[in-house]
């Protein structure tokens, strides 16, 4: 029972970490807090649903859905954010709200406002028994996928020129351009990665709920935003730490709070967030930005 709670906690933390990283990677490079990030999750969900309805086998449908998330993020950048390049943080924020609302309405009217059921394969919802502990397979897979994605991103950022350029761009984008590295390519890559991560998070989210609806991205991305702020907005290690911290806190509070206090779980978590930010206003692991007049 305790083992299962711990696994659930880490699993939820992993999902928040993936989403927070997606937000952080885009923010670190162009200063945009993308509130339409949740709609990338929704788009991934419908891509999975659509593929399955068309009879695409499950593993292939998952790949289609992930690609869809990445491409949707790049399309979002190309259509909505590139024309706003260089605009103030507020204008960018409002643009992302507009994109988010537009996509929600499209999903509501184009597909359905009601949740659509997605049948997950039996093995994903099954449980294994090791000795006298019974563990569900879903959350374990979720942890594995989150960790693999984090590892993959770390390798990309450390070992490739584009990854190095992205780390450099989070410090000083103008100088990266002076090196002859195209700004558009760096930004498109950042969005692509954030889309892939949103897609992975969406699949893990759906695996737990077995349904897709037009508003499914809202809550997790709001939580991921909180996680990114706790960690230090724009800091990638901060996003990961913040994500896991938030997920673990939520699940553990759920487990230990007496029933009469359970409805206050989010209020308690958010109070803790305020406390953290009072002590460390820049977040747990502040992002490094060159101060310039």
């Amino acid at each position: 029972m305790i083992a299962q709670q711990i696994i659930n906690a880490i699993s939820l933390g992993g999902v928040y970490a993936l989403l927070a990283l997606g937000l952080a990677i885009v923010f670190s490079i162009i200063g945009l807090i993308n509130f339409a990030h949740g709609e990338l999750m929704t788009a991934t969900g419908y891509a999975l649903l659509g593929s399955l309805l068309m009879g695409v086998p499950f593993p292939l449908a998952v790949i289609v859905a992930i690609c869809c998330g990445g491409l949707a993020a790049m399309a979002m950048e190309r259509v909505a954010f590139r024309p706003m390049r260089g605009a103030s943080v507020t204008s960018l924020l409002l643009t992302s709200f507009a994109v988010s609302s537009l996509l929600k309405v499209l999903f509501q009217n184009g597909v359905s406002a009601r949740p659509q059921t997605i049948l997950m394969p039996d093995w994903m919802t099954s449980a294994v028994t090791i000795g006298d502990i019974t563990l569900r397979v879903g959350p374990a897979i979720s942890i594995a996928i989150s960790l693999l994605a984090l590892l993959g991103l770390e390798l990309f950022l450390r070992r490739t020129v584009m990854g190095t350029a992205m780390r450099a761009a989070s410090e000083d984008f103008a100088v990266v351009r002076l090196m002859g590295i195209p700004a558009n390519r760096v930004i498109a890559t950042a969005f692509f990665i954030s889309g892939i991560f949103a897609a992975l998070a969406a699949l893990l989210w759906i695996a737990n709920r077995a349904s897709v609806d037009p508003l499914m991205g809202f809550t997790p991305v709001l939580k991921a935003f909180i996680a990114a702020v706790i960690g230090g907005l724009g800091s990638l290690p901060g996003a990961v730490v913040g994500g896991f911290l938030l997920g673990v806190t939520e699940v553990l509070l759920q487990a230990v709070l007496p029933p009469e206090l359970a409805p206050y779980r989010d209020a308690i978590v958010l109070s803790a967030v305020i406390l953290v930010l009072l002590i460390r206003p820049q977040g747990l692991i502040p992002a490094r930005r060159v101060q310039r007049s």
Binding site: V161, T164, A165, R167, A168, E171, D172, V175, V176, M179, G180, I181, R288, V290
Partner: peptide, 15 residues
Amino acid sequence: FQSLTVAENLRLGGA
């Protein structure tokens, strides 16, 4: 680039 190593700074210069 302060958070990048000397090697990485040079690597980007030669991009």
